[in-house]
Simulated scan of single mutants.
Amino acid sequence: MRNNELLPYDTIVQATSGEPEAVNTVLQYYGRRIRYASRISGQADKEAEDFITETLLKALFKFRFSRVSPPDTTE
């Protein structure tokens, strides 16, 4: 379940601004983790999955980059 590739910084910035394609990319990226975390007694629980997704979206739209500096892109 480990994914060593991170979401691009620009995608996250766009998603926090409400860009639908970027939000969809974030949801796809975390979809497998959300489904795994929403299993109860080994069974998929749609309510739990919906709750986790809703919580992620709320946090995404609340996040502000004012206190976070962009990553250094010089290599």
Rank of each mutant, 00 (worst) to 15 (best):
G18C: 06
A22G: 08
Y30L: 08
D45K: 03
V26T: 09
V26D: 08
L60P: 04
E21Y: 12
E54R: 06
F65G: 01
D45L: 02
V13T: 03
M1Q: 11
Q43T: 08
D10N: 12
T73S: 15
P20A: 07
D10L: 14
I52S: 08
D50I: 02
P71F: 10
Y9V: 12
R64Q: 11
G31E: 08
I12E: 09
E5W: 04
G42A: 04
R64T: 15
F65M: 04
S17W: 13
A15I: 06
E49I: 00
Y36C: 07
E75P: 15
S38N: 06
Y30E: 10
E21C: 09
N24S: 07
I40P: 07
Q14C: 10
S17H: 13
E54F: 03
R35C: 14
I12L: 14
Y36W: 08
L60W: 03
L6H: 15
R67S: 14
A59C: 06
I34K: 06
S69P: 11
D50V: 02
K58S: 05
A48D: 11
Y9H: 13
Y29V: 08
A37G: 10
Y9C: 08
T25K: 07
F63P: 00
R2I: 15
I40D: 13
F51W: 11
E21P: 09
K58H: 05
Y29P: 09
E5K: 09
Q14E: 12
E19M: 03
E49W: 02
T11D: 04
E19F: 11
V26Y: 05
R35S: 14
F51N: 11
A37S: 15
S69L: 15
K62G: 01
Y30P: 05
S66A: 15
V13S: 01
E75F: 10
A59S: 10
M1R: 14
L27C: 03
Q14P: 06
T53N: 02
D72Y: 11
D50E: 13
F61H: 04
R64H: 11
S66F: 14
D10C: 07
I52D: 07
P20Q: 01
Y9I: 13
F65T: 04
G42D: 09
